[in-house]
Amino acid sequence: MKSKWLRIAHISMLVALTIFLCSCSKSTTESRIKLDVEENTSRIGLEGPLSPQADEVVFPSKSIYLVVPYAPGGGTDSIARAFARVAKKYLDYPIIIVNKVGEGGGRGMREGIFALNDGYTLTMVTSELNTLAVFDFIDFSYEDVDPLTLLNSEQGIVVVSKDSLVHTIDELIESARDSKKKYSIGSAGEGSVWHLAAKGIENSAQIQFDYKYYDGTSIALVDLLGGKTDIVIAGLSEVKAHIDAGEVKVLSVLSDSRLSEFPEVETFSEAGYDFSIGTWRGLGIPKHVDENIKGKLLDIAQKVSQDEEFIATLKVLNLNYDYKSKSEFETFIKADFNTLELLNQKLDAQR
């Protein structure tokens, strides 16, 4: 009997010991799990809810549109097409040019600037972004666009048809004063930079023009060559081929110094008038584009705009290469707006 009770006691002790060990093991496992969860939670808090690889945006995953606010064939369109062609080196998808004409460039810039901010719409922003705002022809301004980079700038050139009876800016002004002739002058729309240039000449020389507005300087030049308008103000790139072909004559350049391409042609300032003006062109995107996507677009813009092929193409097209970084471009646009605003106020006061 005694032996029986000893066996029962021994078995009970074994059962109790097993239960104790299992309890300890469970407690240790739970503690270890708790520590692992706390460690992982802490790591997530430091690194963010997703790893950088998982959070990386795949962009672009389709074609990108580049809005050009003027007709094909002009300086702005030529720069856009050169940019799109060179961009093929750095993108798996093409940049598609979309020409949106009207309102002196206002329509195209409005549609591009206020497009869906998913990064798939770039816009060629030009000096008209400021001149149209100064004239109150548009309900937006440089503050509504996110600039990427400046690509080009050039001074204005005053040209007439080869058949014109005037050969210099002095002869034009004298003829307009003496004969009371109202010369017609074509520009890329009311409120365009060349419209403001014409107003500056008109006001400085105390003469009057008959204004004609087109959806691009290239179209205005067609009428100049056809004898339907007397004068056009344009950038060198837009008239160089016509000058070389002997189809138009250069009367003056609206810059502070003579152009190396036409060293014999005096500036408007040298003719005795304190006035100069030029145009510029760059790239912009809508506001509030995702920072990762904007960074990719900025990287592409910088690579293309500093690519030797792009620079060489602009030289062949007689387009003055003028690169400015994003921050420099932002400062440049604001300063240009302030200058044009003061100029327009001055012209208004002198009327």
Results as ranks from 00 to 15, higher is better:
residue 5 W to E: 06
residue 31 S to E: 11
residue 272 G to Q: 10
residue 161 S to R: 00
residue 80 A to H: 04
residue 175 S to A: 14
residue 290 D to N: 15
residue 62 K to Y: 01
residue 96 I to H: 00
residue 15 V to L: 15
residue 267 T to N: 03
residue 216 G to S: 12
residue 101 V to M: 13
residue 14 L to Y: 08
residue 244 D to C: 04
residue 286 P to K: 07
residue 33 I to K: 14
residue 9 A to N: 01
residue 52 P to H: 08
residue 257 S to I: 12
residue 9 A to W: 02
residue 62 K to I: 01
residue 81 R to A: 02
residue 186 G to K: 05
residue 40 N to T: 10
residue 186 G to M: 03
residue 119 G to H: 01
residue 334 K to T: 14
residue 326 K to T: 15
residue 52 P to F: 07
residue 334 K to E: 15
residue 34 K to P: 00
residue 177 R to G: 03
residue 42 S to L: 05
residue 293 I to M: 04
residue 117 N to I: 08
residue 111 E to N: 05
residue 46 L to Q: 14
residue 173 I to Y: 06
residue 256 D to I: 09
residue 311 I to M: 08
residue 28 T to H: 13
residue 48 G to P: 09
residue 28 T to G: 03
residue 192 S to P: 13
residue 252 S to K: 03
residue 194 W to E: 13
residue 270 E to V: 06
residue 274 D to V: 07
residue 273 Y to H: 14
residue 287 K to E: 12
residue 17 L to I: 15
residue 108 G to C: 02
residue 215 D to L: 06
residue 314 L to I: 04
residue 333 I to G: 08
residue 141 S to M: 07
residue 265 V to P: 02
residue 224 L to F: 06
residue 250 V to I: 13
residue 106 G to H: 10
residue 197 A to G: 09
residue 296 K to H: 13
residue 242 H to Y: 15
residue 12 S to Y: 08
residue 43 R to M: 10
residue 51 S to P: 02
residue 216 G to Q: 12
residue 4 K to W: 03
residue 128 E to L: 00
residue 338 N to F: 10
residue 303 K to T: 06
residue 116 L to K: 13
